[in-house]
């Protein structure tokens, strides 16, 4: 895990080359490449985006462009040296939104999937791309490294802050909670809820199942509180005044708590 100002990058290295999950922003592409170079001299073979925000996809062009796709024989020159770069995998909704109105001009995913799960095999281990539907956005992917027992959770799990539910891009509070529970079904603690599967969050520190559970509890409890206030016909301002995140604001920040309340309220109102 490489922690940077744009969040966390996961790097898998091995005999086939380098796989990079979330190359962060354009501004930190060169430092990210420098850090990857310290881990392995092998070429970057795959880039995977867990979501579509600029702090996850901004470095796509530079990082993928520095890599090489896997190819051999008489087609190698054409694939590696002409089209250049490593393929960029993401859920198809990432491509739709990045290439649509308000999107970006470059760095789009080159390979997308639309099913619940897409499987790859690289560096001697299965790598699974699992779609978390309508969570942070509608294009979230959790990347599971089955042999090394690591999950890149993207912005479905951000233990240093309240979640961001991007309602304009298909996110929802209930989808986010479903995504966190989906993540908990993947993780396995080693012994008595200690250690085991490591989780690389979109933002925040390295975690394990117990950390995800603690975060899932918080999100669920806040959702339940706001849902109860909505059922009592309270307006958004009244809900904010009731301070349903009061006991968690010291951990995740009061200002972001107000934004989270509004996102949950609007998501439940849909």
């Amino acid at each position: 895990m490489i922690a940077g100002p744009g969040g966390n990058t996961t790097v898998q290295v091995g005999r086939d080359g380098v796989l990079v999950v979330d190359p962060q922003t354009t501004a930190v592409s060169q430092p990210i490449l420098a850090e990857i170079g310290k881990l392995s001299p092998a070429p970057i073979r795959y880039v995977i985006n867990t979501t579509l925000d600029a702090d996850h996809v901004g470095g796509n062009q530079a990082v993928a462009g520095s890599g090489q796709t896997l190819a051999g024989g008489n087609t190698r020159a054409a694939t590696v040296y002409s089209s250049g770069g490593a393929p960029i995998y993401a859920h198809e909704n990432v491509l739709k939104r990045l290439s649509g109105e308000g999107g970006v001009a470059s760095g789009w995913p080159t390979d997308t999937y639309f099913v619940d799960q897409k499987d790859l095999f690289i560096n001697g281990e299965p790598v699974q791309l699992i779609h978390a539907q309508a969570a942070h956005t509608d294009g979230d992917t959790m990347v599971v490294f089955r042999r090394t027992d690591v999950v890149s959770a993207g912005d479905v799990f951000t233990p240093d802050r309240y979640p961001v539910i991007d309602l304009q891009r298909g996110g929802s509070i209930n989808g986010l909670i479903a995504g966190l529970n989906q993540l908990l079904r993947i993780t396995v603690p080693e012994f008595n809820q200690q250690g085991g599967t490591l989780v690389v969050p979109g933002h925040g520190r390295l975690s394990d199942e117990a950390d995800v559970a603690d975060y899932r509890d918080m999100v669920t409890i806040v959702r339940d509180r706001i849902q109860d206030l909505v059922k009592r016909k309270m307006t958004l301002e009244q809900v904010k005044a009731a301070r349903p995140t009061f006991d968690y604001d010291g951990i995740y920040g009061a200002q972001k708590g107000a934004e989270f309340i509004e996102q949950v309220y609007r998501s439940l109102a849909r």
Binding site: Q193, D217, I221, D247
Partner: peptide
């Protein structure tokens, strides 16, 4: 005040040291 002892029955909470 919001805590319920039933939380200990949730799988991820049962074996916490």
């Amino acid at each position: 005040d919001a805590w319920s002892a039933s939380l200990w029955t949730v799988p991820e909470h049962q074996c916490i040291p």
